[in-house]
Structures are given as structure tokens and as C-alpha cells.
Design a protein around this nucleic acid. Sequence first.
DNA 1: CCGTATCCGCTGCGATACTG
DNA 2: CAGTATCGCAGCGGATACGG
Lengths: 131, 131
Amino acid sequence: MGNMTEQAADVLSRHCPSQGVLEMVTGKWSVLVLYALRAGTLRYSELEQAVDGISQKMLTQTLRDLERNGLVARTAYPVVPPRTEYRLTDLGASLEGIVTDLGRWAQNNMGAVLVARQDYDGRRGGQAQAR
Amino acid sequence: MGNMTEQAADVLSRHCPSQGVLEMVTGKWSVLVLYALRAGTLRYSELEQAVDGISQKMLTQTLRDLERNGLVARTAYPVVPPRTEYRLTDLGASLEGIVTDLGRWAQNNMGAVLVARQDYDGRRGGQAQAR
DNA sequence: CCGTATCCGCTGCGATACTG
DNA sequence: CAGTATCGCAGCGGATACGG
């Protein structure tokens, strides 16, 4: 099955629900939380440490979002002090490979990207360049 | 880049530049444009058609960003009417596999995600649910 | 310990109009 | 055809304070 010149029902199609699925990856923190959870089950506080720089608000919000999308399972133990654990669901685990590849790509190629940026900004002749 | 006192010098570390690299993927349109450009060299108007629903502003902005990051090459031919072509650089092409996997994952699993959302929202007992 | 609530600046993104 | 300019707003995301 080869020919894919017809790509009507594709991710690129506006009304395809897969767009909404991709929006899970957009957002500053989602990928990083998934990346951290590859290690296995983690408590809230452990995630907070693992994903360096994330605020409580964004950690909670990202986790709720991932939970809603069925990628992460939340288990709260009614003890004092509270204990809550998060782990990837099967669905979430099916993304592990991609998340890992993405992380590896980022680390392997950040150098090249940084150089490209300097090059691009440089060609612009030292004008004030935001971002 | 030298400072990696611990094994913790990976994507999850706050000061790791790979975070900035990951931000290329965040954003609603970047992945879709990359996805479209897997097909080969495309003109501006072809991209506009391919990535359904994107506005001129966001297409231009996304392309500039990808160009700045060294993932996309832009070639403008000084003819009338103007003709501008975009293609993946080698660096951009090195992301092809991941982008393809991501697209395939989205299409294969959007059903499961949709179900998970309904399930999650349903358990909340019909309360007003944003997003 | 694991959250929720609130205030608020910033910017991503869309809509629209204009140009070489 | 391939952009740029401008406006406007919703929502992301940070800081801080509070609650079970």
C-alpha cells in the first residue's frame, strides 16, 4: 500500500481529530512529564524534582491533562501525609519510543540548532532580534 | 557544553539548551509543517493548502522559526510572480522519522484518546467542563 | 504532602487589511 | 504569489497564598 498522494483524512486535515491529539504534545511541559514517567511510577513530589523548573500549578495542570487523555494513571492513597502516584498507562507507554527518540534527538542536535540560530540572527546584521 | 556534573544533564534539566530545542515542537503548527514537508520541496502556496486551516501569518511565522532553527531551507526566486520554495535541511530531515511516527501514533490512537476524554469527563458527573 | 485559588503579564494565534 | 502590519483576545504559564 504505497501511494499517499491523497491525504484527505490525514493529520494535516483540519477536521481530523488527530489534530487535537497532537495538541497534547504542544505545551511546554507535557513531553517532559511523559519523559520523566518513562522511569516508572513516580510520586507528585518526585515529578516536581524530576522536571526541573516546573511550578506546582503547571505540574498539576499537565498531569490532569495527560490523565484526561488517558496517557497517565493517577492513584491517590488516603493516608496522612497524602501519597499520590503517577504512571504511564498502556496508551501512554505506547508513546515511550517517540518521546525517547525526541529527547535523544534534542540532545544530539541542540548544538546544530544553536549554531543555526546564531547564523540566522547574524545574517540579519546585528539588528535587535527578539526570542 | 561542558557542565554535566551529574547524569542529570539531560532534557529534564532546566538549564539544558535542549529545552529550547523542544520548544520547536511545541506550538500548534510546527509539527504539521514539518510533516507536510516530508513530501519534498513545496512552495508557499502549496504549504498553505497542505496544512489545512493555517493562516498566512502563522505559516510565515512558523516557517521563519523553522528556518532560524536550521530545519527548513528557503529559496526565493526573484521572478514575477514571486516563487518561493521550502524544503527540509539535512537537520530537518533527521527529524522525519520522529515526525512520521508522531503522525502515525496520532492517527492510530486518536480513538483511544477520545474515549479516554469522554470517560474522564463523564466521571465528573456532567459538571461544566472547559476545554 | 498534595494539591487548589487568584492575580496578572506575556504571547500564541486568528482575522483582516495592505504591499511589491 | 508571497508575504508584512495591525488589532484583539483567550489562554499559557509564573508567583504567591491558602486548604485538607
